[in-house]
């Protein structure tokens, strides 16, 4: 990776601070031509209020890494889903107390609603408190074993 690519990939998501935008899977590409850099990102949810901050952050990260001219493009296709979260991203989420989404789905696989494993004690005896959580991409759960409430990234 070039210095600019590394700097852009290391930008953190403003709402899920433990993840970089590369971990979250919303960084779609960094193209360099001379001093001109084009960064392509995609939103998790259409109304994600963090997109403006992310746009600003990737632009300044690229400039700090030496890019003379930066363009940030937003694409919608292919649409983001939780399958875009990297394995590293999943591990970081779990370590930070947010349940990662269910394992990646294969095309054609039957979608099942699986219970979330508690990121604190590991128990599968959990219940969904609300399908909507503190940000557009999370839902709210509680562990029946250790009684702790926790966030989960919505299967999407």
């Amino acid at each position: 990776m070039t210095a600019v690519e590394e700097a852009v990939a290391a930008v953190r998501d403003p709402e899920i601070r433990v993840l970089t935008i590369a971990d979250l899977g919303i960084l779609r590409g960094v193209a360099e031509e001379g001093g001109r850099v084009t960064i392509t990102i995609t939103p998790t949810y259409t109304g994600c209020p963090a997109m403006d901050v992310i746009r600003r952050d990737v632009e300044s990260a690229a400039r700090r890494a030496g890019a003379a001219e930066v363009e940030v493009r937003t694409v919608l296709s292919p649409p983001w889903s939780t399958d875009w979260i990297s394995e590293t991203g999943r591990a970081k989420l779990a370590a930070a107390g947010t349940a990662p989404p269910p394992a990646r789905t294969r095309p054609g696989a039957v979608a099942l609603t699986l219970t979330m494993r508690c990121p604190r004690c590991g128990s599968a005896d959990t219940e969904e408190l609300s399908r909507f959580g503190s940000t557009a991409c999370k839902s709210l759960w509680r562990c029946r074993s250790c009684r702790e409430p926790f966030d989960s990234v919505k299967a999407h």
Partner: peptide
């Protein structure tokens, strides 16, 4: 409280689509 958050989340999704 949970429903308050849910309704605001749905509103946000609708707003996101509307903006695009």
């Amino acid at each position: 409280l949970e429903e308050d958050i849910a309704l605001a989340n749905i509103a946000l999704d609708q707003l996101g689509t509307a903006r695009l």
